[in-house]
């Protein structure tokens, strides 16, 4: 795949504060990440777990014309890609959970594609986590962003620090706090 002029264009427009470019870039990344994941599957052996971090970083290298952007555009891209990753995973969890509730009428398959035993349960977990994350975002949007970048985007503490404009020790601490809050929201009664 060659760097896509679309992606680079959208990224540059979004930097200039073009709201529709921003939304367009997000939707675009959602599709591109799905597509990239598919291509990775073809290149690597099947059965390999989706590595969200590798996917997000590879997306940047493959979709964006590096000669036309600046470092802050990369940060911007990684942040958006992390968000897209979050929604890809959560959307799948929702679909998976809906399958289950729908009685799971099995599709005829040529070769069997076994349904993961744990996936249904994890789908519910991920939806609970997403709800907890929404609560966390209401309480402290910055902590919420750390979760999105770190947990869904698989970004390093250094990358998170650059994107959020904070020091590395601070984002490490933010991550510990955010995770504790998530756990608390997920386990709290009510």
């Amino acid at each position: 795949m060659t760097p896509s002029p679309d992606t680079t264009r959208l990224l540059l427009d979004a930097r200039r504060g073009d709201r529709s470019a921003f939304d367009g870039l997000y939707a675009h990344l959602y599709d591109e990440l799905n597509e990239l994941a598919r291509q990775r599957l073809a290149r690597f052996r099947p059965g390999q777990t989706l590595d969200t971090s590798a996917l997000v970083h590879e997306a940047y290298l493959r979709l964006v014309d590096q000669t036309r952007v600046e470092l802050q555009d990369r940060d911007h891209f990684l942040a958006l890609a992390s968000r897209a990753m979050r929604f890809i995973v959560v959307d799948h969890a929702r679909a998976r959970s809906a399958d289950k509730r729908g009685g799971g009428a099995a599709l005829l398959t040529l070769d069997r594609v076994p349904v993961a035993a744990g996936a249904g349960e994890e789908a519910d977990d991920v939806m609970a986590l997403d709800q907890a994350l929404a609560s966390l975002e209401r309480m402290d949007p910055r902590l919420g962003q750390v979760v999105e970048l770190r947990f869904f985007g698989g970004l390093t503490h250094e990358e998170v620090a650059r994107i959020t404009g904070r020091s590395v020790p601070t984002v490490k601490r933010d991550w510990i706090r955010a995770r504790a809050w998530l756990y608390r929201f997920m386990t709290a009664e009510g």
């Binding site: 777990t49 989706l50 969200t52 890809i88 995973v89 998976r96 035993a117 744990g118 947990f151 698989g154």
Partner: peptide, 15 residues
């Protein structure tokens, strides 16, 4: 540390 640790089977399923 990441959603892969948390929901590996779901990601497999997504894959």
């Amino acid at each position: 540390e990441s959603v892969g640790d948390f929901a590996g089977a779901l990601l497999d399923d997504l894959t």
